[in-house]
Amino acid sequence: MTIVFTICSINYLAQARTLGDSLKATNPDILFFIGLVDILEGVSFDDAFMPEYPMIEIDKIGIDGFDEMAARYDITELNTAVKPFYFTYFFKNYPKADNVIYFDPDIIIFKPLTQLLHSLQLHQAVLTPHINTPIEDRLTPNELHHLNTGIYNLGFAAFRRSPENLEYIQWWEEKLRYECMIDLCNGLFTDQNWMNFLPVFVKNVHIERNPGYNAAYWNLHERQFSIVDKNYFVNGDNPLIFFHYSGYDPAKPDILSKYQDRFELAERPDLTELFALYKNNLIKNGNAYYRKFPCFYIKPARVVRYLRVRKWLKKPFNYVIDQLETI
């Protein structure tokens, strides 16, 4: 059995539904779950916007000290900090699951994951690097940015069940309890830099360089896309397996990604249909509707700001609150 999951708050359910729809169309035998970093109690969705995919609320998976994590992190950091805990949850509660795979919600899967599942038979885990080849300019992002934010993109990670992987995931959990911040000066960028250690700590990790995997704004300098008989290809005859639409907003359809300044969509006609497809799916799946739901776990900026002070990070949570009351 293979499980695929994503993680989001309610405001990103259009992306999660789009991912689920693409997985259902291409890989109907794979179980798909939405890890919901939010609370459904008291929330009522219109019938047209009730997700058909099972949602597992974060407070249901048994993270010790989760309230402290939720107070410490902003919503982006919190959604990434819980990732290894969901891996643990699925391996523990689904003993027949041989593989557990994570995809960011802003991804579309275009093909069966046959090659990926074969790789997991041969290897302990599979990661994709941000880039396979050097970048020839100083635009954003370049190699320096990737050194700061991680060699591997954690919008995707695949693990096979094994004692070594379960041990690594437990180590990853403990790191992300306190150190899943966007704090580049201290070497932190959410969960990603910690994954640099996986090929060191766990033997036989596969670094997937197939250009059809995890195509996104950060590697477009090395990838060109084409369509043949309604099938998408990369760099000639490589099938596009999944595309990662990180930083795309259907309300601003001409902007490829808010995180980059290298390419304009108007200058990349090979991307026109890929992005039109994504925009239409997000609109259909309720992007504007879900955006109106605030996340239950968003804390006041004042609390988050003071909980970032590193000398307090490993103090008991009540100690930090007591200090805030005196400020």
Rank of each mutant, 00 (worst) to 15 (best):
Y168I: 01
L176K: 02
I169R: 01
R160H: 13
I182N: 12
Y168E: 06
E167H: 13
N153S: 15
L176H: 02
F156D: 01
P163S: 07
L154P: 02
L184H: 06
F189S: 00
R177G: 05
L166I: 11
Q192P: 05
I151K: 15
D191Q: 04
G155N: 05
C180Y: 06
N153W: 04
G187A: 01
R161C: 08
Q170E: 15
N193K: 14
N165L: 10
G155D: 06
L188K: 02
Q192H: 12
R161V: 08
Y168G: 06
K175F: 10
L154W: 00
F156N: 04
N153I: 09
F156P: 02
I151E: 15
L188Q: 12
N186H: 11
C180Q: 09
A157F: 13
Y168A: 06
R161W: 10
P163K: 01
I182A: 11
F159L: 04
L184R: 02
R161Y: 14
I169D: 02
F156T: 01
D183Y: 07
I169L: 01
E174I: 11
C185F: 05
I182Y: 12
Y178D: 12
Q192Y: 08
P163H: 02
F189I: 00
E173Y: 12
N193Q: 13
W172G: 05
T190S: 10
E164C: 07
W172C: 01
E179L: 12
C180D: 02
N165E: 13
T190A: 11
E173L: 10
Y178T: 14
N193D: 12
S162G: 06
D183K: 02
I151F: 09
Q192A: 10
R161D: 03
L166T: 05
F159T: 02
I151L: 15
R160K: 08
T190R: 10
K175E: 14
E179R: 04
G187W: 03
L166C: 05
M181V: 14
N165Q: 11
C185E: 14
L188I: 15
D183M: 04
L176I: 11
I169Q: 02
S162N: 07
C180F: 00
L176T: 04
P163A: 05
L166A: 07
W172D: 10
N165G: 06
R161T: 09
W171M: 09
G155A: 11
R177N: 13
L154F: 02
N186I: 13
E179Q: 13
R161Q: 08
N165Y: 10
G187V: 03
E174Q: 13
R161I: 07
M181N: 10
D191T: 06
F156Q: 10
N165K: 05
Y178S: 11
R160C: 14
W171Y: 12
C180E: 05
N193W: 01
E179K: 06
N186F: 13
A158N: 03
F159H: 00
P163I: 03
Y178A: 08
Y168R: 11
S162H: 06
Y178V: 08
C180R: 12
E174M: 12
N193L: 01
I169S: 03
K175A: 14
A158V: 07
R160A: 15
L166F: 08
W172M: 06
A157W: 09
P163Q: 04
E173A: 10
I151G: 04
Q170G: 10
Y168L: 07
P163D: 08
Y152D: 06
C180V: 02
